[in-house]
Design a protein around this nucleic acid. Structure first.
Lengths: 189, 189
DNA sequence: GGTTGCCAGCCTACTAGTAGGTAGACACGA
DNA sequence: TCGTGTCTACCTACTAGTAGGCTGGCAACC
């Protein structure tokens, strides 16, 4: 793996656990075993590094979403893949929080270009959720009581809120419990 | 108002907007117009100041909850008072985020005694929500499809998630939209 | 009623340490 | 030989926290 990729991975982990204002180039240098100056060579400013993390995350989500759709996976299974992914990440502490969620909380302190990247990530996720919910609704597997956009935003809020509550209580199962309820509500007649 | 109270109020605002790792004694000193050393006189360490903020917030919530219950306000109106409070705070940007929510995101970086205070805040809020939902369910105004605890945690997750999404999009109405949906779901037959 | 002593509150001036960021030299492969 | 990547050494600005001194009010005692 290239040093650049290692730097991004390290920054992702640090943002997930400590947030943008909670980590420094010194932390990244320590993890990747290079000097601080080497990080500046790849990412001149801290915001550049963080933006690379967010952009990569968004690209991965979009790629996974495309792959699922092209494979003809049904809507409820697509949604379940998404929630199961976070359940696993939180349970084994490999990624205890979504990067964009963490950065969203810190929004007022972020440089504007990084804030733009975060918004783009949320927009991308909302669009995908809308598409999945819409298709599922047409197929009759999801029972939407409000507009697709509202249902998508509510589901997203539930997922991010569940991460927050699970982190506050330090009980990973709390996340699964809450998301499970959100899922059942969509399926309920 | 005492200097001590001014310091707490200033710290609350700064935590809500920037988070624990995003503000410094210099920021507080600037807002309250005292020297940094004076803050240390009242709150020896940064964590002491933050803990005072969280403890005061929890006490206020508990006091309000008691007042509402003693006034004989019905459950749906009690819940509405809570959500309306945040709607207003977010709309006029007077308090664009819950202190405990912000600190929950930063949990892994907080000193343990401050983390304890944050957990206590969440526990207190969950307990109140459980009580309100439980009473409302017995009166037949709330339709709970799962355990009271699960429904309480899900509602809380929705509220905090809505704050996060609203902050990401910088659109205060998003919060009201999402919470409105959560509320209607509780009332739905 | 003075005088004395105490103390909360606030200050200036400082410490040690960390933040993000830069300059310039060196190694190495195309 | 040029570009890329890495390094050491350094910078300025800022962090939380400390040391020690000043002030003005309150209480106790003669």
């Amino acid at each position: 793996m290239t040093t650049q990729q290692k730097l991004i991975d390290s920054a992702r982990y640090l943002i997930q656990t400590r947030g943008y204002n909670g980590f420094s180039y010194a932390d990244v240098a320590d993890q990747v075993q290079v000097r601080k100056a080497s990080i500046h060579h790849h990412f001149p400013a801290k915001a550049d590094l963080a933006r690379a993390v967010v952009d990569e995350s968004r690209a991965q989500i979009e790629q996974h979403a495309r792959a699922l759709a092209e494979a003809g996976v049904n809507p409820q299974q697509q949604l379940l893949t998404y929630t199961r992914y976070w359940e696993k990440c939180i349970a084994d502490a490999s990624a205890p929080f979504c990067v964009a969620g963490m950065l969203a909380a810190e929004m007022p302190t972020l440089p504007s270009d990084l804030a733009d990247a975060v918004r783009a990530h949320f927009r991308s996720l909302t669009n995908w959720l809308e598409a999945v919910l819409s298709t599922g609704s047409q197929l009759g597997v999801f029972q939407l009581r409000h507009s697709v956009r509202q249902e998508a935003e509510a589901f997203m809020a539930m997922v991010y809120g569940a991460m927050l509550v699970a982190r506050a209580y330090a009980t990973p199962t709390t996340f699964a419990d809450i998301v499970d309820l959100a899922f059942k509500r969509l399926l309920a007649k």
